[in-house]
């Protein structure tokens, strides 16, 4: 787990969607030539507005979408696209989804959600060993008493608790890299920090590489080593977190920073809105 070369690399990723409007087809370039390297133990934040292509990148890395061109390399070698190679890749790279109310199947218990990835990636384990792992995962995401949380169903949990389950599920196969697609945007502001800090603590314990996708610059700076700013499918600015926030170069980054809520500017914003209305 502590190999120095452990890395997840996106090289020249391009994703085009074919849109049909009646008989006419047009092409939408959702992601244009994006490259970055995520190393074990580090966090990269991917920041951008809705529709900037950041979730498409997440889905491509989670192998839910196939890139139009470009490669995803794990530890320097091309990643599998099907069969056993894909299964091995999924054991290493996992995803935490945005909406904890939609990402857990209402029909199944929490135990089912954690047990399946363990069974799939570690078929050699006995029933009791799988159960032990499920319980220890729940304890690692601070859902205790684990035996009681295991048998509950998603609707019996709060949003923050569900997102912890989703994080545990991503860790279940023994993943080394985690793609977190806006993991706290659907949660109440009061519990966001708890979930983010949990993710950060787990990352330190396991030396996980985390791709943190967000539109919130504040948490991006707080949580990540490097920030990539995306705009219309392209990375317009990249660099160490503090440098990007404190000394933005690109116009779009500057606008993004201005749009962020700033207590000192609240009055100005109100005047602006009122005069416009």
């Amino acid at each position: 787990m502590n190999q120095p070369t452990a890395s997840l690399e996106a090289r020249n990723l391009v994703k085009e969607f074919r849109l049909r409007n009646g008989l006419k087809f047009s092409t939408l370039q959702a992601v244009k030539d994006v490259s970055f390297t995520l190393e074990a133990g580090r966090t990269i934040a991917l920041v951008g507005e809705s529709g900037s292509g950041k979730s498409t990148i997440a889905r491509m890395i989670a192998k839910l979408e196939t890139p139009t061109s470009g490669d995803i390399l794990l530890d320097g070698s091309p990643s599998g696209t099907r069969g056993r190679a894909l299964a091995a890749y999924r054991g290493d790279v996992q995803m935490v989804f945005q909406d904890p109310f939609a990402s857990l199947n209402p029909f199944h218990s929490i135990e089912h959600h954690l047990e399946r990835p363990i069974r799939i990636h570690h078929p050699e384990l006995s029933r009791a060993e799988v159960r032990d792992r499920v319980l220890s995962l729940l304890e690692r995401v601070r859902l205790t008493p684990a035996t009681q949380f295991a048998e509950r169903r998603p609707h019996e949990l709060s949003g923050g608790q569900r997102q912890r389950v989703a994080i545990a599920r991503a860790l279940a196969p023994g993943a080394r890299f985690i793609v977190a697609d806006e993991p706290v945007s659907m949660l109440d502001v009061s519990i966001r920090l708890g979930v983010l800090n949990l993710l950060a603590a787990l990352q330190r314990e396991e030396r996980l590489g985390v791709l943190y996708i967000t539109h919130d610059l504040a948490t991006a700076r707080h949580f990540s080593d490097e920030i990539l700013v995306m705009y219309r499918g392209e990375i317009v600015e990249r660099g160490p977190a503090d440098a990007v926030i404190l000394d933005p170069q690109h116009d779009y980054t500057k606008r993004l920073l201005e749009a962020a809520a700033d207590p000192e500017r609240l009055g100005a914003l109100r005047d602006e809105v009122r005069s416009a209305g």
């Binding site: 192998k63 996992q94 990835p117 599920r169």
Partner: peptide, 13 residues
């Protein structure tokens, strides 16, 4: 299109 289906695919189902 629900996320839990995508999630189970990511899990390797």
């Amino acid at each position: 299109a629900r996320e839990y289906v995508a999630a189970s695919r990511v899990a390797g189902e």
